[in-house]
């Protein structure tokens, strides 16, 4: 058994050496593709996680009209809560709002002095939500309630929209760039295997003549594709790690010691190796399938 494995591996390695430049190109392009895909996925996940923490800070202030009764105010709370995407609703009366305003603006005591007697602040509902992208829709529904002041829904619409659109753009960029690179690397792996088949046609013929089974004849090509994909995955992880370290150091320098989180080396390495290996296997299969089919047609 070990003898067979050793034979198959040595055949694959011989082929890789034989097509050295093509192998080099295939491995590097796979690494690039996986770097872009893996890197952007990692970035997307990181920014999404960061955005999720921001969502707790993003809130919507809903100002109520003067003269809304206590019953009306109480009835409004469950209606807001019922809107899709709303996480929490907290009521703050005028006095609390004024108190917080004073606390947040310590330099204007003179201007706010005596306002308690004729409090201009409205009763307010503070609404938080689960997803940034739902903020506009939630705001639109709330603004439609009669108890709410005209233009009485206040939130950082532009900032939230920008963050949300950045995430979407990042996702599409990853899909398109990574897809193109993945396709290119796939074509290169496919071509390398085809070249191998051409270069090894004598060996294949001899193997078939002496009665080697299909496993022994074709497995080295599968191994070759998998090695290319795995090496690409390994390289991509290495480059990502280096990028992470550099970005971390830069962020540390510019943002007063605030670096980035730990690099998920084990999980990223595992996923990129699995992706690279499977991709190499798929490309080899396609490359082998084609000549075998043609061979069959020629014989028929």
């Amino acid at each position: 058994m070990l003898d067979r494995i050793e034979f198959l591996l040595s055949e694959a390695i011989t082929s890789l050496k034989r097509n050295n430049w093509m192998t080099f190109a295939a491995i590097n392009t796979s690494a690039m593709a996986l770097f872009i895909l893996g890197g952007l996925t990692y970035l997307y996940v990181s920014v999404s996680a960061y955005a999720a923490t921001l969502q707790d800070r993003f809130e919507m202030k809903v100002f109520l009209k003067e003269g809304v009764s206590v019953e009306q105010k109480q009835a409004l709370e469950p209606r807001i809560k019922a809107i899709d995407g709303v996480r929490s609703v907290v009521f703050k009366d005028k006095a609390t709002v004024l108190q917080e305003f004073k606390r947040d603006n310590p330099g204007i005591e003179m201007e706010t002095k005596g306002l308690e007697l004729d409090n201009p602040m409205p009763d307010t509902y503070v609404v938080t939500y689960r997803e940034l992208r739902k903020a506009d829709e939630i705001a639109r529904v709330i603004a439609g309630f009669p108890e709410v002041e005209p233009n009485g829904v206040n939130y950082l619409a532009d900032e939230q929209r920008f963050l949300d659109q950045s995430l979407v753009a990042m996702r599409w960029l990853g899909v398109i760039l990574g897809g193109v690179m993945l396709l290119t690397s796939g074509v290169l792996i496919y071509n390398t295997i085809r070249l191998t088949i051409m270069a090894r046609r004598r060996e294949i013929r001899i193997m078939e003549l002496v009665g080697a089974n299909r496993f022994m004849v074709w497995t080295p090509m599968f191994i070759e594709g998998v090695i290319q994909g795995l090496t690409g995955g390994l390289l991509a992880t290495g480059v990502l790690f280096v990028t992470h370290v550099i970005v971390g150091a830069l962020m540390g320098a510019f943002f007063r010691g605030q670096g980035i989180g730990a690099f998920p080396l084990a999980s990223l390495l595992t996923w990129l190796l699995i992706a690279g290996g499977l991709y190499g296997l798929l490309c080899s299969y396609l490359a082998i399938r084609e000549p075998k089919r043609k061979l069959k047609e020629a014989k028929a």
Partner: peptide, 19 residues
């Protein structure tokens, strides 16, 4: 098709071009 390798191990083949 899978049985052909076994068949070929029952015979020796000398091709015209030595191979």
């Amino acid at each position: 098709r899978d049985e052909i390798p076994h068949l070929r191990r029952q015979m020796g083949i000398v091709p015209q071009d030595f191979g």
